[in-house]
Design a binder for these strands. Structure first.
Lengths: 209, 209
DNA sequence: CATTATTAGAGAGTGCTACTCTCCAAGTGT
DNA sequence: ACACTTGGAGAGTAGCACTCTCTAATAATG
């Protein structure tokens, strides 16, 4: 197919497809002439994945490129793919501190993590932000969060197919990046539901009594 | 204190403090003249909260203003504060579909949610993105996620103080927006830990066998 | 073969956001 | 008195994700 059909099938504007092509999110089509190229189903899938990483996963175009290219070159290790995905995910921290607290917490839960893991710094950053705001994280709440996170992570890892390295790598990226918004949406939904039954009504009624 | 001290104490550049003042994230100081104003501890706290919402929570300046102002006018209902926080949180969806699947799921778990809840549309959007990418969400995984999300939400709601409406409202915002990155970081950390023990080693070894 | 539409590719332009800089009269500290 | 700081507002900047424009080459059609 040509670029206009690729655009029509995916719903991504032609100009944007060209932009993604230029930025390397999508590999070039098979050139059949100086001003002509052919695209196939793999381009369709790749473009959709790129689009989802950017629009749903919240990755910048540059970050999405990194993740997608790690996906190409990753028959070797799924850890590299996971690392690439983690490095690409927001938030992007400009100033970072030594993740001492985060390391201690991870150790206290028996989690074996690389000391340079971006998630460690993200956790440290988030914890310090809670301090600054006058609401430091308490251990109990953190432990509950950690347990929930661990449960989810187990599901994530269990969901990775062992059929082929390519499929596995793609599944890791999807599981890491695209399931994240699912988790956030579910948390917010659950907050609503829980607050409706345990906070909303009592507080509403308590207003006059 | 004057603006330069406010800046020094919080680590936010004077120019940025002025910008936040202009945008209404931080209330004006008590004017003592045409070119002089006094700020106090409440301004310090407010500035830190604004900064955290923007830099850690990922809110836009406009969204942070909305959340913070809902916080001011919310002795009435914590639901309004929660709703404001949820509406302000990314991702910002431009095109949205009817959240039929999300509604069904919520109902199937017995979650009572408002049909117009932003989180519903976010969930619907995320589910469709998974479809597009050729990896539709399976019910089992969703159920596991939902259970984890529900557990976290219960902790969130339980952590809201009942001392005063102001404190409660602030706690809701902090719990919703600033604990979100904590959860994400923990999930990524757990993914690393779990994948190291159950994916990494086997796959590494299997490379040659 | 003539004509019209489409295309690849690259450069430039746009709209938006979050700052950051510049100014200046008014006020402060010594 | 006089250098220095401040509040406030307007203008400028940088980065990002597109989006438009242009050109020569090709495809489609009669």
């Amino acid at each position: 197919m040509r670029i206009s059909e690729l655009s029509r099938v995916t719903g991504v504007p032609v100009a944007t497809v060209k932009y993604y092509l230029r930025e390397g999110l999508v590999p070039p089509g098979r050139a059949t002439g100086a001003t002509q190229a052919q695209y196939d189903d793999s381009h369709v899938l790749r473009l959709r994945l790129a689009r989802a990483l950017v629009q749903v996963g919240g990755l910048s175009v540059a970050a999405a490129r990194d993740v997608l290219s790690s996906l190409d070159a990753a028959g070797d290790s799924l850890h590299l793919v996971l690392g690439a995905a983690h490095s690409a995910l927001p938030p992007r921290l400009e100033e970072d501190h030594e993740p001492t607290r985060a390391l201690n917490l991870a150790a206290s839960w028996g989690w074996q993590v690389h000391p340079e893991a971006p998630a460690l710094r993200q956790l440290e950053h988030a914890l310090r932000a809670l301090d600054d705001v006058g609401a430091p994280a308490d251990g109990e709440r953190l432990a509950q969060y950690a347990e929930a996170a661990h449960r989810v992570a187990e599901v994530d890892v269990a969901g990775v197919p062992t059929t082929s390295p390519e499929e596995a790598a793609t599944a890791v990226v999807i599981g890491t990046v695209l399931w994240e918004p699912v988790l956030l949406a579910l948390r917010r939904l659950a907050q609503e539901a829980v607050s409706a039954e345990s906070l909303g009504r009592p507080l509403h009624d308590a207003g006059s009594g």
